[in-house]
Design a protein around this nucleic acid. Structure first.
Lengths: 247, 247
DNA sequence: ACTGGCAAGTTGTCTGACAACTGCTACGGT
DNA sequence: ACCGTAGCAGTTGTCAGACAACTTGCCAGT
């Protein structure tokens, strides 16, 4: 299923990987649009759409009358914006992700979680708590919550190494975006024990609410990251790129 | 100078602000492309490019054969990706940004800064250290470094309330993007004194390197943010949005 | 040696058309 | 009365060709 995405997405993927593979280095000029379109036997407009996507993502920049150039974009090992789950975050640093101390439970929704999931406080929801490891080292203590009619505790147990995101997508609830809130903190007794560090160790806590394209919140998670295990990076677009609204 | 940006950028800005103003709410369908194009007296292709930008930014989502719909995108008060400088971060929360304890100096580049700015270790560079305040409260302790031939300490003194970014842009060095690295930490004696908090207070440190579109690093900064003063948020794009490369 | 303009090449926009898809409606069979 | 299906109108996706706006390098004239 899933079907082929639209042509311009395919073209964008293609160009992105060709740039990523180093076919054109930073500062190089891409072949002209008519040229690229002719070689791929697609219309120039489709190819232009693809390039527009790459431009929006910051991979290339276009100069009217001159050409399209590959930007000197840094290759971030772990960009918060791109690496969604903890697994991909760990994998992006070249380490082997794993899990430990898994616990699947049916719990009463605590107030903040209930509010985020739009359910009544105290109603039963599925929760999955686990410690994520990188090359065997305990680095993240996570808890995920979701509605039981979306995923029951049994569903969570069955997914094994599969990601929660793909399980949700298989149920027709693909996660479109998430809002992550970052807070520094110190490990409490419980988390310290689970992560096998001293109490009070530095943590970066990420509270995240994932929603579908329709704006329905489907997954709430709280992740306590060991501060010295990762370096979290964000690519920030400069003020020149898109002047923006205020009020 | 600056010139009018391309038409599709203008159209995108226009639509973005109209959505932001609430003309169409989340879930609503936008007028059809031919309709919007006719009303603005522009070609459908230009308008399509504009909508493509909004789609890439996550404001709308298109459905082939059905229409273009406004997504339920959360209105983030302070998104790390969008709010670039500390001032805009403070202003985005509705507080009044200010500065205190400014110090302009000519210093010898410490190794990490020298590496980031691509200058010799120990060579003279401009630095600006200051405490940023929000409604008078001391919330961030920042230090900026840049090459003296880009901005001398006197240039920094002269800019007053103007941002360093606009000063760099005026010198033909517009900042295109920056890479921010986030680290939790505890306040050392010096920072604690400057921020008027207890030693060991929780901080979120942001180390950032800002570069031009050509990839030339022009500004390095280290910001110690009081943990309880802000909540840092990032909008993360879901896995469904753009399946991506790995290696 | 310098300057001005010309010309080729590239991206930006426009126009018109058709294909592919969605959602609804009306029709016909059971 | 119910249900499935074909058709239809509306929308986004793609195509083709043309011209405008801009950049860059070259070349002739001074």
């Amino acid at each position: 299923m899933t079907a082929t995405r639209s042509l311009r997405h395919l073209l964008a993927d293609e160009l992105r990987s060709r740039i990523h593979a180093g076919e054109w280095g930073p500062g190089d000029r891409l072949p002209s649009e008519p040229e690229l379109a002719r070689r791929r036997a697609v219309s120039r407009s489709s190819l232009r759409s693809a390039i527009a996507m790459l431009e929006e993502e910051g991979f290339v920049s276009r100069r009217h009358g001159s050409g399209t150039y590959v930007t000197h974009r840094p290759a971030l090992s772990n960009d918060l914006r791109r690496n969604f789950g903890v697994s991909s975050l760990i994998a992006a640093t070249g380490l082997e992700p794993g899990t430990a101390d898994e616990a699947f439970e049916l719990v009463r929704a605590p107030p903040p979680v209930a509010a985020a999931l739009a359910v009544a406080v105290g109603s039963a929801i599925s929760s999955l708590r686990r410690v994520r490891t990188a090359d065997g080292r305990r680095v993240v203590d996570t808890t995920d919550w979701c509605r039981t009619d979306d995923l029951s505790p049994e569903d969570l147990r069955e997914l094994g190494d599969g990601s929660i995101y793909s399980a949700l997508a298989a149920r027709g609830l693909p996660v479109h975006h998430g809002v992550a809130r970052l807070t520094p903190g110190n490990a409490d007794a419980d988390t310290a024990r689970r992560l096998d560090v001293a109490r009070g160790a530095l943590l970066l806590t990420i509270d995240q609410v994932d929603t579908t394209a329709e704006g329905v919140p489907v997954l709430v998670s709280r992740e306590h990251h060991l501060a010295d295990a990762f370096s979290f990076t964000v690519l920030r677009h400069g003020p020149g790129a898109d002047a923006e609204e205020e009020r």
